[in-house]
């Protein structure tokens, strides 16, 4: 299709408005001071304008995060819409920063803005990428860790979208368990 008059071009609206946050680990500041809202968008075109403008996760410094959340949900456990929820967590090895991280993050974003999880998309709160020396992490956060059907739908489709091998298991952990853990591992409520 040819757009005759660019001023009449209507952008493609997304189901949700999304907010992209950036976390920079500055030890002289508090956790909340380090969390900054970059921008919000609610069309396909504005999503790409933002995506094309910012650094890929593999170029970020250690300790930095990107978070993409539905407008109105803060990227923290304490938010009303997160506190009963949890996350599908994918832990990458060091080699995967070079090979997979940026691709996985883009696929994650496309799953969110495109509402790829059918009805279960309503359970999605957002997604987070953590860039860490020991291994980067990707997660999709959902609103209620008791919504088994929605969580399993999201986990299965997410794994397919990232083309993870069948035998590779990914786990879902409640924020409650993650925030109260004493050791270095949190038990999985679900896995696919």
């Amino acid at each position: 299709q040819v757009v005759a008059n660019p001023e009449q071009y209507i952008k493609h609206p997304l189901q949700n408005r999304w907010a992209l946050w950036y976390f920079k680990n500055d030890k002289t500041k508090s956790w909340t001071e380090n969390l900054r809202l970059i921008s919000k968008f609610d069309t396909v075109e504005d999503f790409w304008a933002l995506y094309n403008h910012i650094q890929q996760p593999s170029k970020l410094n250690y300790g930095c995060d990107y978070c993409l959340f539905k407008d109105g949900i803060k990227p923290m456990w304490e938010d009303e819409r997160n506190k009963l929820g949890g996350r599908w967590l994918i832990t990458l090895n060091r080699q995967q920063r070079h090979n997979d991280l940026d691709r996985y993050w883009m696929e994650t974003l496309l799953c969110l803005v495109g509402e790829s999880f059918d009805e279960a998309s309503e359970d999605v709160c957002g997604a987070v990428v953590n860039v860490r020396p020991k291994g980067d992490k990707l997660a999709i956060w959902t609103s209620n860790c008791q919504n088994r059907d929605a969580i399993m739908t999201i986990g299965q489709l997410y794994k397919e979208r990232l083309s993870l091998p069948m035998k590779a298991l990914i786990g879902y952990q409640s924020h409650d368990d993650t925030s109260s853990k004493s050791g270095s591992t949190t038990k999985n409520m679900y896995s696919v």
Partner: peptide
């Protein structure tokens, strides 16, 4: 109706938007 976009549709706009 829900506004859902599949992967290929979204990817088709990656470089269109940059010139707008």
């Amino acid at each position: 109706a829900k506004k859902r976009y599949d992967r290929e549709f979204l990817l088709g706009f990656q470089f269109i938007s940059a010139s707008m």
